[in-house]
Nucleic acid binder design. Structure first.
Lengths: 130, 130
DNA sequence: TGCATTGGTTTCCATGAGGTAACTAAGTTC
DNA sequence: GAACTTAGTTACCTCATGGAAACCAATGCA
């Protein structure tokens, strides 16, 4: 029983709950999840929508997401081949917290840019008048 | 005016809303933010709580968070020095979506581990009976 | 005088994530 | 039979991130 309210588990490097933060932190994974929010998308479409990702890296990303059960991969026996990627139930459940984070990011972009400007100005002033 | 509901902005590599995802994705930043949820913490304490991070990397992380206005840095004129790091109002507002994401991660760890096992088993079977 | 404390900085190094470019499979159409 | 399509794979390379270890500044204290 934990006696304090700190997120001790996530601070534990061995706790598996860190995997999701690694997943979110992945350069492409969270983008893919959000693109798939609209429904199943095939490989080549995904490439276009996620804007200039190389096939190698996209494949890696998709395989990892599939392995973690966040997306499903459906191969159609056609030529040329057709492969659809779709959010699983688990992946869809991630959409809600992810969207909130995206909302936060979009809402606070001005504040962050402002803070950066202020910080950089202070730095410059400090260099000129130490 | 966007005609669809897709998160087109975040898919745009030039949109600044990506900065927050990079910030979250940072190996230590989101951990620091969650540690600071409990109140101001000084450098050496932070090092212990975030479990084996080198001072160089912790400094980098803190500087970036400070520059983005998520935390404040307070130096006390003492010897030996004392520096407190604390969430700003902006940083505190990130806590809510971040906590939801952490909740999700903690709640779904079993599902993800299960999915991994199933995936790996399927892979092994595929290798044995191709 | 010299050692301890805190909050860093600096230099060097290894790893790995991601990018580039070329290639492949397999059937369909020209 | 040559070319086109999709969905990748493979080999190679580069650069940024993060880690290790040593060092430093300022002062109180023994």
């Amino acid at each position: 029983m934990e006696t304090n309210a700190l997120p001790a588990n996530i601070l534990d490097p061995d706790c598996p709950s860190r995997v999701i933060f690694q997943r979110i932190g992945d350069k492409w994974a969270s983008l893919v999840v959000q693109v798939l929010a609209a429904g199943p998308v095939r490989f080549s479409e995904l490439r276009k929508m996620v804007h200039v990702v190389t096939p190698k890296v996209l494949t890696q990303t998709l395989r990892t997401l599939e392995r973690d059960g966040l997306i499903t991969r459906t191969v159609y026996a056609q030529v040329p081949p057709r492969v659809d990627y779709e959010l699983s139930e688990l992946g869809a459940s991630l959409l809600e917290p992810l969207t909130l984070l995206r909302q936060w990011a979009e809402d606070h972009v001005p504040s962050i840019l402002e803070a950066r400007d202020a910080y950089d100005d202070a730095q410059d002033a400090g260099i000129l008048n130490p």
